[in-house]
Nucleic acid binder design. Structure first.
Length: 100
DNA sequence: CGGTTGACCAAGT
DNA sequence: GACTTGGCCAACC
């Protein structure tokens, strides 16, 4: 059965555990696509809000990026999961990145 | 089916 | 090191 691009994003992202992160680029690459922009668009829709941790997706630069309910909310959640964030940027994001 | 848009990225100035 | 530009792909009108 063929899933839409969006559904593939959710399926992969769903595997990211608490306290870990991934980037838009990395996520897109995981589903064999280069559509990092479309990934962001998919997250914005995010119909699987609680199941899919869309707040654990950040930019490749390490900046948190955007969030449907406000970037501040996203940051707050990540901090709660033990991730250190400074001025909207994740500190040492490399150590939090999840390997698919 | 062309044109616009987006929770992006990388290279150039 | 801040700012601009072009490029990427899917979704929407």
């Amino acid at each position: 059965m063929k899933q839409s691009f969006d559904e593939r994003c959710y399926d992969k992202l769903r595997k990211v555990p608490k306290g870990k992160l991934t980037t838009y680029k990395d996520l897109a690459h995981t589903i064999k696509s280069q559509a990092y922009r479309a990934v962001g668009t998919a997250m914005n829709k995010n119909p699987y809000a609680p199941q899919v941790p869309c707040h654990r997706v950040i930019k490749s630069d390490g900046f948190v990026g955007g969030f449907a309910h406000g970037t501040s909310k996203k940051i707050a959640m990540l901090k709660k999961e033990g991730i250190e964030i400074k001025n909207g940027k994740v500190v040492s994001m490399q150590r939090y990145l999840y390997r698919f």
